[in-house]
C-alpha cells in the first residue's frame, strides 16, 4: 500500500502546526531502530526457513521429476535475459577499457582485464541478478498465488509436504541452473568485449586471444561457477521463502515479488564481496 500525501488521519486539516519533534523522530529514530531490528528479524526468519528446506533435501521426500521440470523451465526462461545483458556489459568494458588503455598505449591488455572482470565478478553477479529478476520473481509469484488461493494448504491437507513438493525442487533447480548460466555468461561477456575490440577498434584477433588467459586460470572458472551456485541457492531460498509466506491477497503476491528481487540483489552483492575476498583476496594482494 502506498503511503504518501494521502496520509490517514488528519490529512485533510491542512498542515498548520508541524510537529517538529515527531517529524525528527520519524526521520531519524525510526529508520535507525528499523535498521537495527529489521535485518536481525528478517535474517532469523529466513534462516529458519532455509534450514527447514535444506533439512528436507536429504530425506529424499521431494520430487526429482519436479526438479528436472523446474530446472528446464528456469534455463529456458533465463537463458536469453542473461545472455542479452552480459553481452552488452562485455561490450561496455571493451569501449571503456579501450579508452583507459589508450592512455598507456597498452591496448593488448584489454582482454586480460576483460576476462578477469567478467569471469571473477560480473558473470556470476549478473547471471544471479537476472535469474532473481526472472526466475526468482516468478517463483515468488507462483508460490504466492498458490498460498493466496489456498493451494498450498490443499497440498498439505492431501498429506503432501508442500516444502518437499513445491519448494525444494525450485531451490535445487536454482542452485543447479545459475552456475550453468554463469559459465555461459563468461563466454558471452568475453564475446561482447571481443566484438568491440576486434570488430570496432581493429585489435588483432591473435593479440586478444593471446592475452585473454594472462590473469586468470582454470581456478577462476571454477570459482565463477562456485559463486553462481552459492548465489543460486540464495536466490532460490529467498524467492520461495517470500512466496511461501505471502499473505494479504493480490498485494501480498506483489510484495513477495518485490521483496524477492530486493533481498536477492542485496544478498548477492554482499555475499559477492565476501566470496571475492575469500577466493581471490590472496592472489590479488
Amino acid at each position: 500500500m502506498g503511503g504518501g500525501v494521502y496520509q490517514r488521519g488528519k490529512a485533510q486539516q491542512a498542515p498548520q502546526g508541524v510537529d517538529l519533534g515527531g517529524t525528527l523522530r520519524a526521520v531519524l529514530l525510526s529508520p535507525l531502530v528499523a535498521a537495527v531490528r529489521g535485518p536481525i528479524d528478517v535474517l532469523g526468519r529466513f534462516s529458519r526457513f532455509g534450514a527447514r528446506v535444506l533439512l528436507t533435501v536429504p530425506t529424499r521426500r521431494w520430487s526429482v521429476r519436479e526438479f528436472v521440470t523446474q530446472a528446464g523451465t528456469l534455463t529456458a526462461r533465463c537463458f536469453i535475459p542473461v545472455c542479452a545483458t552480459i553481452f552488452p556489459f562485455g561490450a561496455v568494458i571493451g569501449v571503456q577499457g579501450m579508452a583507459i588503455f589508450d592512455l598507456f598505449g597498452a591496448h593488448r591488455l584489454l582482454s586480460s582485464l576483460l576476462s578477469l572482470v567478467i569471469i571473477r565478478e560480473l558473470a556470476p553477479v549478473l547471471a544471479a541478478v537476472l535469474v532473481a529478476a526472472q526466475g526468482g520473481a516468478s517463483f515468488a509469484a507462483e508460490l504466492g498465488a498458490m498460498r493466496i488461493k489456498e493451494e498450498l494448504d490443499a497440498t498439505a491437507v492431501m498429506g503432501i509436504d508442500p516444502i518437499g513438493w513445491h519448494v525444494v525442487p525450485r531451490v535445487l533447480a536454482m542452485a543447479f541452473v545459475v552456475p550453468l548460466l554463469t559459465t555461459l555468461a563468461n563466454a558471452f561477456g568475453v564475446a561482447g568485449g571481443y566484438v568491440v575490440a576486434v570488430g570496432l577498434y581493429d585489435q588483432d584477433h591473435g593479440v586478444f586471444v593471446h592475452h585473454m588467459a594472462q590473469l586468470i586460470g582454470i581456478f577462476d572458472l571454477g570459482a565463477s561457477a562456485f559463486k553462481g551456485a552459492v548465489f543460486g541457492l540464495l536466490v532460490g531460498l529467498i524467492s520461495t521463502w517470500r512466496g511461501y509466506g505471502a499473505t494479504g491477497g493480490a498485494e501480498g503476491v506483489g510484495r513477495a515479488v518485490n521483496d524477492t528481487v530486493v533481498y536477492s540483489v542485496m544478498f548477492i552483492l554482499v555475499v559477492n564481496y565476501q566470496l571475492s575476498s575469500l577466493l581471490f583476496g590472496g592472489t590479488g594482494g
Binding site: T85, Q96, L130, A133, A137, V257
Partner: peptide, 27 residues
C-alpha cells in the same frame, strides 16, 4: 493474484535488460 505477480515479474526483468542494453548504447 496471479496477474499481479506476473506483471511485477515481467516488469523487473524487462527493466534490467533494457537498462543494461541501453547502457551500452549510451556509453
Amino acid at each position: 493474484a496471479r496477474g499481479v505477480g506476473q506483471a511485477t515479474n515481467r516488469a523487473v526483468v524487462t527493466m534490467c535488460i533494457v537498462i543494461i542494453t541501453l547502457n551500452f548504447a549510451l556509453t
